[in-house]
Nucleic acid binder design. Sequence first.
DNA 1: TCCCAGGTTCCCT
DNA 2: AGGGAACATGGG
Length: 306
Amino acid sequence: MDNTFGEKSRQNFRIEIENKNTIIKEITDFDLEQTLECGQCFRFYKQDEEDYVVVAFNKLLHIKQSGNQLIFFNTEKPDVENIWIPYFDLERDYNEIKSFLLKKDSKLEEAIKEKWGIRILNQEFYETLISFIISQNKQIPHIKQLVRRISEEYGEYLGEVNGERYYSFPDVKTLGTITEEAFREMKTGFRAPYLYDAAQKLATGVISMETLKGLNENETRDKLISIKGVGEKVANCVMLFSLGFREAFPVDVWIKRIMESVYFNGEDTPKDKIQLFAKEQYGEYGGYAQQYLFCFGRENKVGTKK
DNA sequence: TCCCAGGTTCCCT
DNA sequence: AGGGAACATGGG
């Protein structure tokens, strides 16, 4: 398979088929809940402990983790291999990533120990872009709500799990038909003109995986920031979560607080200084460090006054 | 009622 | 150049 996301060392899990389900066995360094709930994606719906519905790449997935087994309900093996293994980044060696980070910086120990099972998802580019434009100045439940609303209005019906209906995220062609006014009617507020600009650039092909191909980190970021409503932070999220730039280090209010608390003696520090520090400290593993810190820090309210 | 949210833009020194 | 308010909407 074409390897878009850099070198991966193959993990030694096994894929088996039982009834209509496909099961991955002996999986390591992976926890479904930690991976889905750490704020990198917005299209997951908790059914039960370690039991989720996920919508991505025009597919509906019902998935459950049981120890070191991952059960893909009603899913054919080719879909697991071609869509979900890349999506969940299961072929990458996270043990190596964690060892690298721990050796480099013992301050990450607590975060990595607690959030040991995070993987960085490889999400669909245009959906990630639209989602993170929505994310500005909003809380995660609201973001989920808006992405779902847009999907129900403009996406395709995918199916039903536990009596709930699910819709795909609209493709770029459909996004291109949504007017600024229509985005406003979706309750996107002041983001409506931003979403409209992004949708137009996607639909007309001004911005696409194709036009971004071959660009380096800074070129890609600049291209993304040319979209109205996309700044440094949103661009970095899109690059990290959908374009394979694992060195990208999004600095939001949480990461700012957390980094100030862990590395800057709790003192107010400009975002660009944090950005620079992260680049020197974690290098090409910046994105991983960011997720461990973000997820751990947010849950434990690091740097906030209680 | 007030405050803030995985920010960005715009307007002001 | 750099700081700060404004921007819709929803929930605590």
